[in-house]
């Protein structure tokens, strides 16, 4: 933030952010899991999550957010990339072409009959990469101001 004489009053923004933040993040999770058979997926989910973090950045300042989320976003992106590659490497073990995916119905105690797909692991990687990269870029530009 630029130092101006005026004291900014962002009480409304901060209060609303505290509530909306969680709705946005939950919505992003919803989109992430919807991604297999319906619109959504890792990329969009990741973008919305980083949108939520940016909302935090706008409502509070960089220092506060860093205290709340002490994360090195470059490493987050690298972690996501690693998950994505490793999900592909699984195909070496099963003797099928690289990045082959499969899905099936699994019975999980509380949730009941659940549809699981290996593509979700790859998508999880994409999710982390998108959050990591977007936040790295925004921080690089935002921090030096």
């Amino acid at each position: 933030m630029k130092k101006t004489g005026l004291k900014t009053n962002d009480l409304i923004l901060q209060t609303i952010t505290k509530i909306v933040l969680f709705i946005v993040i939950i919505f992003s999770f919803h989109l992430f899991f919807a991604g297999h058979n319906a619109p959504g997926g890792g990329f969009i989910g990741g973008l919305i999550t980083s949108g939520a973090i940016v909302l935090l950045l706008i409502a509070f300042d960089v220092k506060t957010v860093k205290a709340i989320l002490p994360i090195n976003y470059v490493k987050v992106a690298a972690f996501g990339l690693l998950i994505a590659i490793l999900s592909g490497i699984g195909s070496f073990l099963f003797g099928v072409p690289f990045l082959s995916h499969t899905h099936g119905h699994v019975h999980i105690p509380v949730l009941g009959d659940t549809h699981l797909a290996t593509a979700v692991i790859f998508d999880l990687g994409v999710y982390f990469v998108v959050v990591g990269v977007t936040m790295t870029i925004i921080q690089t530009i935002g921090e030096t101001e």
Binding site: F43, V133, I137, T140, I141, T144
Partner: peptide
């Protein structure tokens, strides 16, 4: 298109950061 959008998103972001750095 989705792939191309992601790529151009990345390149544009990099370009913006670079422009800012070189302006400094």
């Amino acid at each position: 298109i989705l792939t191309a959008i992601v790529i151009s998103f990345g390149v544009t972001a990099f370009f913006l950061v670079l422009a800012y750095r070189s302006y400094q």
